[in-house]
Design a binder for these strands. Structure first.
Length: 189
DNA sequence: CCGGCGATCCTCT
DNA sequence: GAGGATCGCCGGC
C-alpha cells in the first residue's frame, strides 16, 4: 500500500520515525528494486539549525516549503546525491532524509549501479542509497504520491517498527535534537 | 573494528 | 571564500 499525502502531511519527526521499515520501490525498464528503510532523519524549518531550510527559502531548498510527498534531491560534497521526502504539518516546512536501507529485491540492478561493493556497504548511507537506486538530480521534484517509477509502501497492517532515536549524522549544529531513527536493537538476554 | 584524511564542487554569505 | 545532511581508502590496534 503506497504511502499517501496524509502520511507525509504530519510532523516531520513523526514521519521520519514511521518511514522506518517501509519499502522504497524503484521500478525500471530492466526490473524492480525494493529496499527496506533502516535509517532516516528529520529536518525541519526555522527552528532547526541543521536544516537547509533554517534561513528561509533559497533556490535549492524551495521544495521543503511545498507539497508533501515530493522528492527533494540535493548534491553534496562535490560528488554525492541525497534523497529526501518532503513531510511537514499543513503550512509547515520539512523533509525526511533517507539514510540507509537493506536490499529486498533487485540485487543485480543495484550492483550494476554500485559495482564491486561488499554486501554490508551496499546501501548503508544516503549517498550509497541514492547511487544504488540510480537517483540523481534529475529526480528532484518527483511526486512520490503518483510517480510510476518511485514510491514508498507500507505493510497494510500498519504495524510500526520499534525505533531508536539518536543525534543526526554529519551536522555541526542541532546535535542535541534526537531526530535520527534506526530500528531498535535486539537487546541480548 | 575504528579514526583520519583527501576528493571535489555546489550553495549561500 | 568557507563549509557542507559523504564516501572509500588507508593505517593502526
Amino acid at each position: 500500500m503506497r504511502l499517501d499525502e496524509a502520511f507525509y502531511e504530519r510532523d516531520t519527526v513523526t514521519a521520519a520515525r514511521e518511514l522506518l521499515g517501509c519499502t522504497l520501490v524503484r521500478r525500471t525498464e530492466a526490473g524492480v528494486i525494493r529496499v527496506r528503510l533502516t535509517e532516516t532523519e528529520a529536518y525541519k524549518g526555522g527552528e532547526d539549525p541543521a536544516s537547509h531550510a533554517f534561513r528561509g527559502v533559497t533556490p535549492r531548498n524551495g521544495l521543503m516549503f511545498g507539497s508533501c510527498g515530493m522528492l527533494y534531491v540535493y548534491f553534496i560534497y562535490g560528488m554525492h546525491y541525497c534523497m529526501n521526502i518532503v513531510a511537514h504539518e499543513p503550512g509547515g516546512v520539512g523533509a525526511v532524509l533517507l539514510r540507509g536501507a537493506e536490499l529486498l529485491e533487485g540485487e543485480a540492478l543495484v550492483r550494476a549501479n554500485r559495482p564491486g561493493v561488499p554486501d554490508k556497504a551496499l546501501l548503508n548511507g544516503p549517498g550509497k542509497l541514492a547511487k544504488g537506486l540510480g537517483i540523481g538530480l534529475e529526480w528532484n521534484g518527483r511526486n512520490l504520491l503518483s510517480d510510476r517509477e518511485l514510491w514508498v509502501e507500507r505493510d497494510p497492517s500498519g504495524a510500526l517498527l520499534p525505533s531508536e532515536a539518536s543525534p543526526r549524522i554529519g551536522i555541526s549544529k542541532g546535535q542535541e535534537l534526537l531526530w535520527r531513527f534506526t530500528p531498535k536493537e535486539n537487546t541480548a538476554p
